[in-house]
Computed example of a mutant assay.
Amino acid sequence: MSEIHIPGLVCIDDYPDETTFCSNKNVVNSPQKEQKHQELAIANEKKWQPGQVLRIRFLDGEQQLHKIVENYAKEWLNYANLEFEFGNFADAEIRITFNGNGYSSLVGTDALKRPAPAPTMTLGEMTKATNTKLLKAVVLHEFGHAIGCVHEHSSPSVEIPWDKDKVYAYYKKLGWDKEKVDHNVLKRYTQCGINFSEHDSKSIMQYPVLEELTVGNFKIGWNTELSEIDKDFIAKVYPK
């Protein structure tokens, strides 16, 4: 099986009007002690209502690819009390394009702030021939954003020992400037507006951390499935 390197798994933080919420790459906070379980991080004010039907429209791409994405995305519904309705809805809450570069999605209800028909999720340059594991990992990750989850490596509960000089040099090769690296890689959310506890290194919302970009031997592998903590937590966020 061929190895998928981190550039194929980079998700760009996407917020309407370039606004974010309660984030600071330099802030270190302790986990909320009252929570007893490990949980992925989720933006409280960007959650949908439990039981809500989210309409999803593909703006382009192959029909066979649409079905593949739909099947992977629905895995979240085994645990979250939400419904996905795929169709050609002019005012769909979630609108997906396969044009452009990279992967991104607005977080939860931020999708309502971007007027149709502009896309709220980008699965750039994916086709039905894309590596199966890569495709599934990206779809699960981006739909995690779509239902309100934020990046696990940006959680207030984890402090990754980044070697910043190496991080900047690595992403510069991908065409990223310092500001983009700070925002998408080094940034960490503060506690306000985020529901979280201990860091879940196996979360689908955690992208790989290369050992060559950290101090010491810290690294996180490639996650391609929902973790048990992902499943447990999203079921609490959207109870049946």
Rank of each mutant, 00 (worst) to 15 (best):
G100F: 07
T190S: 09
Q32G: 06
K164T: 14
S201R: 15
Y72I: 14
V69N: 04
V69S: 04
I204S: 06
T214S: 02
N29V: 01
E75Q: 13
T224F: 15
L123K: 09
F196W: 05
T224R: 14
D165E: 14
V215T: 13
Y238R: 05
E3N: 14
K136S: 08
N131T: 06
Y171T: 01
G221V: 09
L106V: 02
K219D: 10
Q206I: 01
V107K: 05
N101H: 12
K47A: 09
N24D: 15
H141Q: 12
P119F: 13
H151C: 03
T109L: 08
E152D: 10
W222M: 09
P16Y: 07
K173Q: 13
F196L: 02
H37R: 12
L213K: 01
D17S: 12
Y79K: 08
T132R: 11
A73P: 08
K133S: 14
K236A: 12
Q35A: 07
W76R: 08
D230F: 04
V181R: 09
K74C: 14
I234R: 05
G51H: 04
C22G: 14
F143I: 06
G51T: 06
L106S: 02
C22N: 15
E45A: 12
D110A: 08
Q38L: 13
V69Q: 02
L213M: 03
N101K: 13
C11V: 12
E3G: 07
D91K: 14
E152V: 02
S157W: 03
L54F: 04
E75F: 01
A80Y: 01
T120W: 04
M1R: 14
L9E: 10
K133G: 14
E39D: 05
F98Y: 10
G124C: 08
K164N: 09
I6Q: 12
K166D: 02
E45S: 14
I56N: 04
F98L: 06
I94C: 05
Y170L: 05
Y238L: 07
T132M: 03
I194S: 00
L140K: 10
Q63I: 15
N71P: 03
T122W: 00
Y238E: 11
H183Q: 10
Q32C: 09
K173G: 00
Q52W: 00
D14A: 13
L9M: 11
G102T: 07
R114D: 14
V167W: 05
E225F: 11
Q206W: 01
K240N: 15
D13K: 02
Y189C: 02
I234D: 04
T97Q: 08
N29H: 06
V215G: 00
L135Q: 14
L82W: 07
G148Q: 09
V138H: 05
V53N: 02
N24V: 01
G124F: 07
A146N: 06
K172G: 05
W162D: 09
Y103E: 11
T122K: 01
E179K: 13
T224S: 15
L226A: 06
K67Y: 13
S154F: 06
D60N: 15
Q52N: 00
K180Q: 11
N29S: 14
Y171H: 06
I56C: 07
C11P: 03
N24P: 02
G51K: 05
F233T: 13
I147A: 01
A90V: 08
P119D: 06
V237S: 03
S23C: 09
K136D: 11
K33R: 09
L174Y: 07
